[in-house]
Design a protein around this nucleic acid. Sequence first.
DNA 1: CGGCAATGTTGCAAATTTTGCAACCAAGAG
DNA 2: CTCTTGGTTGCAAAATTTGCAACATTGCCG
Lengths: 196, 196
Amino acid sequence: MTQPGLRERKKAATRATLSRTAWSMMLEQGLDAVTPESVSAAADMAPRTFRYHFRNREEAILDELAQQHLTLADQIRARPAQEPTWDCLLAVLPPAVAQMCGDRTVFATLMRVISDNPAMLAQNLVVLEHSRLSLARAIGERTSTEVHAATFANLLAGAAVTAISTSVAHWAQSTTDTDLADLLTDCLTQLRRGLP
Amino acid sequence: MTQPGLRERKKAATRATLSRTAWSMMLEQGLDAVTPESVSAAADMAPRTFRYHFRNREEAILDELAQQHLTLADQIRARPAQEPTWDCLLAVLPPAVAQMCGDRTVFATLMRVISDNPAMLAQNLVVLEHSRLSLARAIGERTSTEVHAATFANLLAGAAVTAISTSVAHWAQSTTDTDLADLLTDCLTQLRRGLP
DNA sequence: CGGCAATGTTGCAAATTTTGCAACCAAGAG
DNA sequence: CTCTTGGTTGCAAAATTTGCAACATTGCCG
């Protein structure tokens, strides 16, 4: 797990370059300006390479964000095993998600693009679903290997992703500069205590 | 709301026919057998008509299910306004979802197809997202018109959809004939009380 | 009733996208 | 050093999507 090898690193590098290029182009020129051709041209690569890595532009745009989502599970695994699951989630998710999202105005335009384009919406949902699955796996490892525990872990991971999605949406469209970490903490706390 | 008019009814009829045909073909012959051409041929319609209604086969296959999801919001609106929201959800969702899903083995094959095909997974997530949005709207009407209430309704609707999705997945892949309504009731109850 | 506007259905062909295939070259293994 | 694996690329065929126009039915109004 330490040495991915030069080969895989190069592959990941071109993938990341394409994804970042697509991301920037969407922010600066709008979604319409993002095509496999335009992105690969801007990244000095062949259009065929773009299609080797990504199925379409939406997947490319959100790929880097998806990668970061997957690191959430690793951060959960890094917590002490005896820590209660909710404490773990509350400790890990708010700061990690806040750092992952970065600038609020950037995310506001992203959310706008997502709600305007069915294909972007679908891809965003796929990203969140993969995040949910990886979280469910990490949570499942903490609790136990029971059969019922798997379903419970899924429920918990689903609630966590719902909290992330909801708080990010609220944060992005808010006019005041509220703290995303605090919003997410509130959502998670509500889910923990139970919704009245 | 009572008389959609002959025109809209006919349109909805062809749409439903195409969707049901696509659904059956997926169950009986597998996803590969489902194409705009094969479906419209089986339904005695032009391929162009298929594309007028649906973007692709996945949307067609899941369209009828999506329509039923949207009726959940209506059933929630039909409940007395002073009923607590959680009571309302517990009263409406378990029986409605159980009736909507129907046979367990049918859903088992559907879930298999969904997990094997990225495009089907994405479309299923889109269906659930639309369900979540319609639920959030219905819930928002019950609670209040506050700004914060909208975020809370989203959180609640997200939790409800998570419960639906999780319990359906558990039910579909279970070998014993457990009751879907009971499973969903359990999931919702856990979310209501708060997850330990 | 008689026409007029609106819109669902359909066919056709152009435009675009996706895919298969093979060549080429850098990287890993022995 | 040689062989094998696999990422990158170009090209052309195949498949899909889209625009456009014609036709038929419905809704509407005088």
